[in-house]
Design a protein around this nucleic acid. Structure first.
Ligand code: FES
Ligand code: FES
Lengths: 141, 141
DNA sequence: ATTATTTAAGACTTGAAAGTCTTAAATATA
DNA sequence: TATATTTAAGACTTTCAAGTCTTAAATAAT
């Protein structure tokens, strides 16, 4: 469902918010901590910078940091920045159109669950995740 | 979420059940009616034959037909035959493990919705789809 | 028996995502 | 100013799903 790039992007954003740092965090540090390829992660985070979710700074002491407050960044923003919104709009059986007026055989049921997932990602902000990390101590990063 | 192969497989199975035929239905006919590649569809349906969802017969008058009653074939059977069960078991953020005891940052919410989708596919039999096709007349095939 | 028709099996090609690397640009520090 | 450090951009390679094609095997009809 989520691309590899998108999974890495979410994990990186969670790492960044958890740090609560005003300074820039180097991509190299994030890649090492999360055991990701520096090369691959760099490309992914560049997209988040272009989408306005991160801001970056070059040179020593450079890196990336959140461009907005954690409460204003939703998982859905990250997903749409990397993967687009195909999952939430396209027919699960691959038809060109997906709508209530022109449904496939499982549209009615599928669209309902799909909307719940959409809401889940739209309602989950980095701030909420941050709080949950503080409360539950066994969560993987 | 579903692979192209899986989407085609589901559409083909729906086409077959809708025909309500005791005879074998040629893959060529299915491919033409659903506007799918004969080559690609052949490979896909072979998997369903191996999984025991379809039975096939070679030669003139040959083709495929359901190996079980429509009420005994679930969408989940088709999905697992083609795509496996990765979607329903793997961590949405890509961690190796996915369990309540070792959760990622969105496991608790994700696993809940994922289970609903699992139930949706497990509860939707070809028989139910067949009935819905009869009731609602604007459903795409 | 021969031929036409159909699935079975597997080789082959294509295309897109994943992953790697190189060079350029920015900038802090010495 | 020179150097080291960092992101930016894009070329390049790898991998795997998607898609195509060829040949073999089964079988009905002639
Ligand atoms: S038309 Fe198929 S999911 Fe909406
Ligand atoms: S651990 Fe991530 S979805 Fe279960």
């Amino acid at each position: 469902m989520l691309s590899m790039a998108c999974k890495d992007a979410i994990r990186a954003m969670i790492y960044i918010v958890k740090k609560k740092s005003d300074d820039f965090i180097s991509i190299n540090e994030i890649a090492k901590e999360l055991d990701l390829s520096f090369y691959f992660l760099s490309k992914i985070l560049q997209k988040l910078v272009k989408q306005g979710l991160l801001e970056s700074y070059r040179g020593p002491k450079g890196g990336v940091r959140l461009a907005k407050k954690p409460k204003d960044i939703k998982l859905l923003d990250i997903i749409e920045a990397i993967d687009g919104n195909a999952f939430f709009t396209e027919c699960v059986l691959g038809f060109k159109e997906c709508s209530d007026s022109e449904p496939c055989a499982i549209h009615s049921k599928w669209a309902k669950e799909r909307e719940k997932i959409h809401k889940l990602f739209a309602n989950t902000t980095l701030q909420k995740i941050e709080k949950e990390l503080e409360n539950k101590l066994n969560i993987k990063l």
